[in-house]
Design a protein around this nucleic acid. Structure first.
Lengths: 242, 242
DNA sequence: GAGTGGTCTAGACCACGAG
DNA sequence: TCGTGGTCTAGACCACTCC
């Protein structure tokens, strides 16, 4: 993984947890870990704090550090952890990487909602990108995204057939690191049923979000309509520091 | 605020940001802040990291720390939820406070999953609490919760007809500050349709989670089946420290 | 009282951005 | 090159849990 110490410790601990190396759900104490990894306790704490923020472990002062049993039980198809924002990249975990079928790609004027969300002015334009995501041959998500043309003026058809986030990170050296998401559910409509191979009794999960670059620039507004069987959004919420 | 140093710095910086004390959107560098507050740079970093995780500021190595202009302009987007965990309390926002109809309340032995999730031993008992939540006369959520009797030995029927979280906070002086949630969707089943007044074409949103006390004790496992019209789960996700 | 996580410090060195 | 944030250390002391 990354070459910093706490990331190495993080990756190793994660691996040990997934390998069920702590069947009693209790991790060694921080001072022992510090010694066995040969790093400072601060670095251990840093790794543990991230795992705790991801909901993988939890700590009890005076007692120790424990694996979150629900996390292992709920081996999610879909989760907001690791190197994604709770969205499409996470589908790569099980099975094959998803493929993309481009449904629609055009430039349109930003409406009021988009202007607000993407911090645009009257008359600004956005790309409208509709894509169908397919996992192991099964279409599971209809994704409609809006990206300001001034953020990515050189976008083209072939580029939107791959990961736009990766494209941005490679060419702009700016990572997409923040998002504001809403998760909902709805009965499937006719288009959902056709594209996602659903019956009228089967619903879609909906994830709507605004994505930001690491410098705070709003980058994309996206709506994902997901076959309900494929949607499981995991979130760890902590009110500690507010 | 809290008596720890980084929380004091955090609160003060937040206040200064809201007061527009940094019109050029640039905060003083960490070493200056350290000196002016009379605390170590580590404590400053800790406060700044929390502000960054909340999306209020962002940091650029080599350049400095800046206020997120969107935060000041568009605050509602970033406020995911003040003092709740993305669950039932947040429904009080619009309209009347929800009421509760108790469907079932009994003590049962904890099964394996519950033992794991709530950190219980073989033979431990839990309350099983099934409640219907009603907003402005409309039932919108079926909630099934499991709470270890040893955490709340004095729970009684009248108490589970109100907010259990509030009850815990008042009597135990322990707040429920963390949760690990999964959000999904499913077609409604017969019970859903009857209790939530849904048709077979209308789905339920499902939120499943473990709630923790601020000391890390797992407190409750809960499954909520929600009329899809009433479910909107908001989350702010930041990948800064991963 | 022993064990464990939480906070805090002081200082060193590294990596990146801009002039 | 300088200023800035990022990482890391070693150690002190506090707060809580459990025996």
């Amino acid at each position: 993984m990354a070459d910093v110490i706490y990331m190495q410790v993080l990756a190793d601990l994660k691996h040990r947890i997934y390998s069920n190396e702590f069947p009693d759900k209790k991790l060694p104490d921080e001072r022992s870990l510090s010694e066995s990894y040969g790093v400072s306790r601060s670095s251990i704490k840093r790794a543990l704090n991230i795992l705790a923020a991801q909901g993988i472990i939890f700590k009890k002062r005076g007692s120790g550090t424990f694996v979150n049993p629900l996390y292992l039980k709920n081996q999610p198809i879909f989760h907001n952890e690791g190197s994604n924002l709770g969205v499409t990249d996470s589908y790569q975990l099980g099975g094959q990487a998803p493929t993309i079928k481009l449904l629609n790609f055009q430039v349109v004027p930003a409406n009021d909602d988009l202007q607000q969300a993407l911090f645009l002015d009257e008359g600004d334009f956005v790309y409208q990108i509709e894509r169908l995501r397919i996992l192991d041959g099964v279409p599971f998500m209809i994704e409609t995204g809006f990206i300001p043309i001034k953020v990515l003026p050189e976008l083209s058809t072939d580029k939107v057939e791959g990961s736009i986030f990766n494209y941005v990170e490679e060419t702009k050296k700016k990572a997409v690191t923040k998002s504001f998401m809403s998760v909902m559910a709805e009965p499937s409509n006719a288009a959902d049923q056709e594209l996602l191979q659903l019956t009228a009794y089967e619903p879609v999960g909906i994830m709507e979000g605004i994505f930001f670059l690491d410098d705070g620039t709003p980058f994309e507004v996206s709506t994902m309509r997901i076959n309900y069987k494929y949607m499981k959004y995991n979130a760890f919420v902590s009110l500690d520091a507010e």
